[in-house]
């Protein structure tokens, strides 16, 4: 079968899978981004027990394979089926897509929290002081100086994290989610057509390239203030 033929039969399925990959990644990263700023603040300024708890959580996430985390949630929840049914949560855990998103959120949130913590620590202390000196409340200082800076500093690392999550999302296929990887495996197992793997690889690379481009565009905007020459 020629490449063109193979592509035209596989592409619709692969694109459908790619859409799921994007949704998985986007949902995971975005939900994690909702929690990470608060957690980063606790990690830095919270009470000691909360700090220790967060450190343990981050260390656990970083020290275990994502696949093991995914199995722990997806298959592990089966052990508590009765309890989860009682709570009305069983239908959530039964769905591999939900479990994958949940695990990605838990996972990415740990990494994002660490990245943001680094960003917050790198905010110039003098600028924080200047904000306090004009009488800003703590919440204002956070919103107007600390986080705007921290996100600018952390931006490239956060982008990396999203790419890593996108790649890791391929593991969802192992618990039968039909993302790009899932569709690829499905096509291969039916047709033994090896080229489908390369088509998938090309799509993953394409997603990465487009994402990196967009992320850089935003970064350029965010770091306008660091260029010495006046742009109009």
């Amino acid at each position: 079968m020629s490449l063109i033929e193979s592509l035209s039969t596989n592409l619709p399925k692969l694109l459908d899978g790619a859409e799921t990959t994007l949704i998985l990644t986007g949902l995971g990263a975005a939900l994690a981004a909702v929690f990470s700023p608060g957690l980063a603040l606790i990690r830095l300024f919270g009470p000691t027990p909360a700090k220790m708890l967060l450190r343990a959580y981050i260390s656990f996430v970083r020290g275990t394979p994502l696949l093991a985390q995914l199995f722990l949630v997806f298959y592990g929840s089966g052990q508590f089926r009765a309890e989860l049914t009682g709570l009305g949560l069983w239908s959530f855990f039964r769905d591999p897509f939900n479990c994958a998103v949940l695990v990605f959120v838990i996972n990415s949130c740990a990494y994002q929290t660490e990245i943001l913590r680094g960003g917050i620590e790198a905010v110039p202390p003098g600028e924080i002081e200047a904000a306090r000196a004009i009488g800003m409340t703590r919440a204002r200082v956070l919103a107007r100086v600390i986080f705007p800076h921290a996100y600018r500093i952390a931006w490239p690392a956060l982008g990396n994290e999203v790419i890593l999550l996108m790649k890791a999302s391929a593991l969802a296929s192992i618990v039968t989610v039909f993302d790009l990887m899932g569709r690829t495996r499905q096509i291969f197992s039916r047709s033994f057509e090896f080229s489908v793997y390369f088509e998938a690889a090309a799509l993953y690379l394409l997603i990465t390239v487009v994402f990196v481009f967009l992320w850089r565009q935003i970064e350029r905007r965010l770091t306008r203030h660091m260029r010495r020459t006046q742009g109009s």
Partner: peptide, 30 residues
């Protein structure tokens, strides 16, 4: 990971065993 899967298949205790596997990986990393 696969040994854990086999154990889960027989014992029907997925959470216990996958948690154990996670803890072992965590220990290796630490």
């Amino acid at each position: 990971m696969r040994a854990t899967k086999v154990a889960v298949g027989v014992t029907k205790q997925p959470f216990t065993f996958y948690l154990a596997a996670c803890l072992i990986y965590w220990g290796l990393c630490l």
